[in-house]
């Protein structure tokens, strides 16, 4: 708990989230969201993706502006390195999701954060994606996230915030649990 008299402000409107939770329990159809991205091949292993519209709260929604992402592979893969690799983007997704969760949980527990830094690593044996060893999986063998957090709280409270953010993280769930993926071609 904070020891200062000033109100805790991590910039997360927890009350709005709690109100939304109450409202959506009574109107669960509004809780059905669809997230989207569109990706276009540029050339080589380089692709350009954009996100803007999504569906939720019973209707079409949009970001304030279109966000775009370039993905490619580094030169050691004989690529031009026009962007992060897709697996790095996945790590970014996980670390961003957990970090947003840290802020929200801390706000809800009235703990002031001063700084939060995550470093994330995913180990991979690329014999899998090269098709060189059928017993090696394509994906990560394991992912490690390390947090450095300065907050007005005890080490146990900080640890509990990080644990809770994993519990409520969409990307943590998406990575640790299987998801059916359907890919169609027109």
């Amino acid at each position: 708990m904070t020891t200062t008299g000033t109100p805790v402000n991590n910039g997360v409107n927890v009350q709005a989230l709690l109100d939304a939770r109450t409202a959506l329990v009574d109107a669960p159809e509004g809780a059905q969201f669809t997230w989207r991205a569109s990706t276009e091949w540029v050339g080589g292993t380089h692709s350009h993706s954009e996100v803007n519209g999504f569906f939720g709260l019973g209707g079409e929604q949009a970001h304030r502006s279109t966000f775009s992402f370039d993905a490619d592979h580094p030169e050691v893969f004989a690529s031009e390195d026009n962007g992060a690799t897709p697996v790095e983007l996945l790590l970014v997704g996980l670390a961003s999701c957990l970090t947003a969760g840290v802020a929200a949980v801390a706000q809800n527990r009235e703990i002031q954060l001063n700084s939060v830094k995550a470093t994330i690593e995913g180990d991979m044996d690329i014999l899998g994606i090269l098709g060189a060893d059928p017993e090696v999986r394509n994906g990560f063998n394991g992912i490690k996230v390390h947090y450095d957090i300065d907050a007005d709280a005890t080490p146990e409270e900080i640890e509990a915030i990080v644990a809770q953010s994993q519990k409520r993280s969409a990307v943590f769930d998406a990575i640790t649990n299987p998801t059916n993926v359907t890919v169609e071609v027109n």
Partner: peptide, 23 residues
């Protein structure tokens, strides 16, 4: 987390679940 093709799929969240309970 699921069963597909005769395989039981297990979540990678065991460490966090145990950590939450310990905390």
């Amino acid at each position: 987390a699921g069963i597909a093709g005769g395989r039981a799929q297990l979540s990678g969240s065991l460490r966090n679940k145990c950590n939450l309970a310990d905390l």
